[in-house]
Design a protein around this nucleic acid. Structure first.
Lengths: 199, 199
DNA sequence: CTCCTAAACGAACATATGTTCGTTTTCAGG
DNA sequence: CCTGAAAACGAACATATGTTCGTTTAGGAG
């Protein structure tokens, strides 16, 4: 056969990314095979290679797009939050939760398929993740310097907070009991105040 | 060739489990192939089947052993903690962190390779995980009923706490800067009191 | 209208991979 | 000491899988 009536490179490429997100999220990168991906898009396995160079690069592109968006949007949220340390911290938390609710598949893949990347690609993604973690560590240190936090260890505290806030990806469903806003509020309070009553 | 001098079924089976833990943790279940596993143990691929029925059952056995131990040890820790709600909650947290530091590979596998299990096996492991989550939800509700906690939503709070406490698995190394006891203390305070100063 | 490139296809290749089979040899129980 | 089960092996099978190749046709630039 040959080129299909109405076929468009841009549309097909987007469809491949969407289907790949779903399949990798469901089965994992190693378990997803390109024949199944091609079938999900509605093209032949060979046609995939008109839109990507290798399976590895497909994964890397997905991760890179996600990390770039995460860093950009975070900086935008912080810029909008103004200079007050606590407001900035809350802005970070709020954005993190909302982003992770919206793009749970991307996040899940970026977090758990790092080992599927080749060393060079992995290094780049890990670098961007470190940059993201550095944002939170900086915010914590600023707030602590302003006397607002009791901080045991900024780095470990940041890791623990990120783990908690990222946890929403594992169980959230859009049709769930709690709204995104409610989840933001709940996680913000948990991170800042814990569960203990304050009397 | 044939049976090796000094070979023992029990020892080989244990070596397979250990090597499988390492390889699955490093590469993921789907990416680990049995030839590499056999080489790590020092036997031929065919010999693996003297100690397991299928690759799938190997994964399931690892997960089942871990979940069983986790539930048993948790109950033991709670029994030792006595009746006071806050003491019980702290005992749960402390045990969870210590267990996850000690057995980070098992935990990682049980958490992130669920999708590699066939439906029947997955159901059993998910059931045990729900049981574990129910322990924490119960502790939170007890403490809240005693007026000790300010609880937005017991279920979501439990998920968030577990995500935070389980996070240690992703970055902990035995030769790291902080001792297990310090990590327990830090995470306990984070979970109970958050980061905000109390004045 | 013409022509080059983009985008698709079927077919095949080379390799990887879970698993089975028949065989051999050690070890432990009678 | 004998014998049967346990534990190992090499070899092979059947299938799955990432990728390439040559070909075909639609669509847009000139």
């Amino acid at each position: 056969m040959a080129r299909i009536t109405g076929s468009s490179g841009e549309r097909t490429a987007a469809a491949i990314r969407q289907a790949a997100l779903r399949l990798i999220h469901e089965q994992g990168f190693a378990a997803m095979n390109l024949r199944e991906l091609a079938a999900a898009v509605g093209i032949s396995p060979a046609s995939l290679y008109n839109h990507m160079t290798t399976k590895q690069s497909l994964l890397f592109d997905l991760m890179l797009e996600h990390m770039t968006a995460l860093l950009e949007q975070t900086d935008a949220a912080l810029a909008a939050a103004g200079p007050e340390p606590l407001a900035r911290l809350e802005a970070f938390i709020g954005h993190h939760v909302l982003y992770h609710l919206e793009r749970k598949r991307e996040v899940y893949i970026a977090n758990f398929e790092l080992r599927a990347l080749n060393p060079a690609n992995a290094m780049q993604i890990v670098g961007m993740r470190h940059e993201y973690e550095a944002r939170l560590i900086g915010l914590l240190k600023d707030a602590a310097a302003a006397g607002l936090l009791r901080l045991g260890d900024a780095r470990i505290t940041a890791f623990a907070m990120l783990a908690m806030l990222t946890g929403v990806c594992t169980w959230y469903r859009p049709d769930g009991r709690l709204s995104p806003a409610e989840l933001v509020a709940l996680h913000t309070r948990l991170a800042l105040e814990g569960v203990l009553r304050r009397d």
